[in-house]
Amino acid sequence: MLTSGVVVSMSNAEATKLYETIIEEVISDSRQDFEDSGIDESTLQELRRVWCEKLSQSGVAKFTWDDEIHHENLGHGHLSVQESMGVLAPDGLLALDSSGGLELPTLSYPTATGDRGHSGGMQLQLPTVLGNDEYDDSTGLMLPRVNQTDGQFELTFETSNAKQLMKKFQVGQADGEFDDDDDSAHDSQDINSDLDDGSDSDKSEGEEGYQEGQIMLCLYDKVQRVKNKWKLTLKEGIANIGGRDYVFQKASGENEW
């Protein structure tokens, strides 16, 4: 778990580049293996697509294909947040404090097995809220009720005052990431609260309390100890820190036992 004062935007452009290169090389190197097993090219491309999609979902880095996947996924029921979008909790009702606003119909969104989920996607485009003097300080939107307990769902709003709109949205998202400093809405969500909790006790697995993430995988050149001081010389590694991946050529650490 990160402590305060963390630079959230520590650059990990190298991880993006490395990962994208790995995917291209693994896919092209595997073409012959697929052929030898009598598996056709479309399955290889399917592997690539699913791999990219899962990487994007992991949120460890931003990838060049992220935007494409966003659109592809509309039909699969993903709830994601971009600029000027609102998010609903599974049972969330977000009402904006305004009168005379729009009210969208209640949606019964198909679950993962739903047939409708794959047919070209479901995209709601709310009408533009025109600058009407009477509603000057309100956006006048009432968000639809979405009966969805997993995955992502994307809403696009067009508005002339996106910032104001965002302020009015309360975020009650049970999973996934949302870049909003205001965490107060999470408090009311007991779903997944354990997962959001970074404490070791909940995540411990085995004697050493292994927790997913916060791990570095690499090679060692030297491990030296003088009394209780350990000096580690490492290289060619990947580290997951605070939910993002970083790659490095060399690493060194001095630690006291």
């Binding site: 778990m1 990160l2 402590t3 004062g5 963390v6 630079v7 520590m10 650059s11 070791d200 050493e208 292994y210 927790q211 916060q214 791990i215 570095m216 995988l217 690499c218 090679l219 060692y220 050149d221 580690l232 490492l234 290289k235 060619e236 590694g237 820190i241 605070g242 650490g253």
Partner: peptide, 21 residues
């Protein structure tokens, strides 16, 4: 040079021998 610092309260390192890679 782009320096970034992160604080983490617990971190695990798994490292294989570089000489055999």
């Amino acid at each position: 040079l782009n320096d970034n610092e992160l604080s983490v309260d617990r971190f695990k390192i798994v490292a294989c021998n570089a000489r055999k890679a």
